[in-house]
């Protein structure tokens, strides 16, 4: 990246990108106008870009082009897709919002069914199987930890949401122990997640400083030094 092999649009773009990076990083000093300005610019640009991509990559190929170029069967299929789409567009207007409910219901129903199927076949069966067979792929100690950790974590949610008042003291104590063990495993998992998020954020910070330094080194310093 040098100024020589860049067109004006890219140069301006790099300058804008550099500026927006500084604006956002200024949040380290505290919330300020530049930060808010940049974030609102970002939201507007992201929404606009998503709209463009959706129109170009979904709506036109699925709803418009088949009506223009497709055969009869394809047109019928497209019309059957178009009607719920138009109903959904009624959601734009608060007065006509209820018209879009059936289309939204179809969407929700499909999503619920897909989630159920995916959860059963993609997570529960394989993971239960893996949990049961931990001793095949691990030594006894690790297998025991894996098994205990999995079930105490799972039971933690159950016991957390449902506590009977008439439980016997022994059961209550056992429940408390299970909850505590489950909580400890969840803390370990969340600690690992936090470490991952932190590394990801650090990498983003490194990437941004790398971008800033590249911009300065390639564009600003040559211009300043003549």
């Amino acid at each position: 990246m040098t100024a020589a092999n860049m067109n004006l649009a890219d140069l301006i773009g790099l300058l804008i990108g550099f500026s927006f990076t500084i604006f956002i990083l200024s949040y380290i000093l505290g919330d300020n106008f530049l930060f808010r300005f940049a974030t609102h610019i970002f939201i507007g640009a992201a929404a606009g870009y998503a709209s463009v991509v959706t129109i170009y990559n979904v709506i036109l190929p699925q709803l418009i082009f088949p009506l223009m170029n497709g055969g009869q069967g394809e047109m019928i299929l497209t019309i059957s897709l178009l009607i719920p789409s138009l109903l959904l567009l009624a959601k734009i207007s608060p007065r006509l919002s209820k018209i879009g409910n059936p289309a939204m219901a179809i969407l929700v129903g499909i999503g619920a069914a897909v989630a159920i199927g995916g959860g059963i076949f993609g997570t529960i069966f394989p993971q239960v199987s893996a949990a049961v067979n931990v001793f095949e792929t691990n030594n006894f100690l690790e297998g025991a930890i894996l098994l205990i950790g999995t079930f105490t974590t799972l039971l933690y949610f159950q016991f957390n949401s449902k506590q009977s008042k008439n439980q016997r003291p022994a059961i209550v104590q056992a429940t408390k122990l299970i909850r505590w063990i489950g909580k400890a495993f969840i803390a370990i998992t969340f600690g690992a997640l936090f470490a991952g998020v932190y590394v990801a954020a650090l990498t983003a910070l490194i990437e941004r400083f790398s971008f800033l330094w590249t911009f300065i080194k390639e564009l600003v310093l040559p211009a300043a030094l003549g």
């Binding site: 649009a9 301006i12 773009g13 790099l14 804008i16 990108g17 550099f18 927006f20 990076t21 604006f23 956002i24 990083l25 949040y27 380290i28 940049a38 974030t39 610019i41 970002f42 640009a45 992201a46 606009g48 870009y49 936090f194 998020v197 932190y198 990801a200 954020a201 650090l202 983003a204 910070l205 990437e207 941004r208 400083f209 971008f211």
Partner: peptide
């Protein structure tokens, strides 16, 4: 151009600020 020079830098910078906050 809008994506590369506006959306991408801003969103990446937001993630970068997160590093300071997480620390």
């Amino acid at each position: 151009w809008i994506f590369n020079y506006i959306q991408l830098p801003i969103e990446t910078s937001l993630m970068a600020v997160l590093a300071i906050s997480l620390t």
